[in-house]
């Protein structure tokens, strides 16, 4: 069923017939990587990201009855994924008593030697991203990594375009500060 369009697949799922799981599989195949990529960047943990993918698509199936099939499906799915990620962060916070920061302790002070290789630098960059608040992290990931339009991000976050632009401004500044703190970007004094 991979050849059917999103709206056709949605209609088949809504009908609840025998073909519904196959139709839903076609939607899943199309967007699972997107959702996983977003969740992975937001949570910094593969296993949690996989949980978020499962939760997202289970919720998506349940909410298809209310979905307006005239609108694009991708932002709708990412909105559900965003909520699933926030729920997951809340659970983690509750469990650990602090903000989850990925597989490693992102709050650790950066080690100058740790920046020796590109892979380690990449890890530090990811930690810098994870150190941001979820709403800032989300706008950066959706805009920069997933290349979404400002309007689409606004729809996902449930706020205005202007608010998203402001949020992106702040997020970029905070990320830059974090990158400087970790020695990935030269601080002004060093230049």
């Amino acid at each position: 069923m991979t050849h059917i369009s999103d709206s056709q697949a949605v209609e088949i799922c809504r009908s609840g017939g025998e073909d519904a799981p196959d139709a839903f599989k076609s939607i899943y195949d199309r967007y699972a990587r997107n959702v996983f990529g977003y969740s992975q960047k937001m949570l910094g943990n593969r296993s949690l990201a996989e949980d978020a993918v499962q939760e997202t698509f289970t919720k998506l199936f349940r909410s298809l009855a209310h979905y307006d099939s005239q609108r694009p499906l991708k932002p709708y799915i990412l909105k559900i994924a965003h909520n699933a990620v926030l729920d997951c962060l809340k659970r983690q916070k509750h469990l650990k008593g602090q903000q989850p920061l990925g597989d490693d302790q992102a709050s650790q002070e950066p080690d100058a030697r740790a920046l020796a290789t590109k892979a380690e630098t990449k890890k530090e960059v990811e930690k810098a991203l994870l150190a941001l608040a979820p709403e800032h992290r989300s706008v950066l990931v959706l805009r920069h990594v997933r290349a979404l339009k400002v309007q689409e991000i606004a729809e996902i976050h449930g706020c205005s375009d202007r608010a998203i632009r402001n949020r992106m401004n702040i997020a970029a500044g905070l990320l830059e500060r974090e990158l400087r703190r970790r020695g990935i970007v030269s601080s002004e004094g060093q230049i």
Partner: peptide, 15 residues
């Protein structure tokens, strides 16, 4: 440096 850091964020190997 900033460009390079943002480029790393875009890495999709996990995905």
């Amino acid at each position: 440096e900033v460009n390079s850091a943002y480029e790393m964020l875009r890495d999709m190997s996990d995905e």
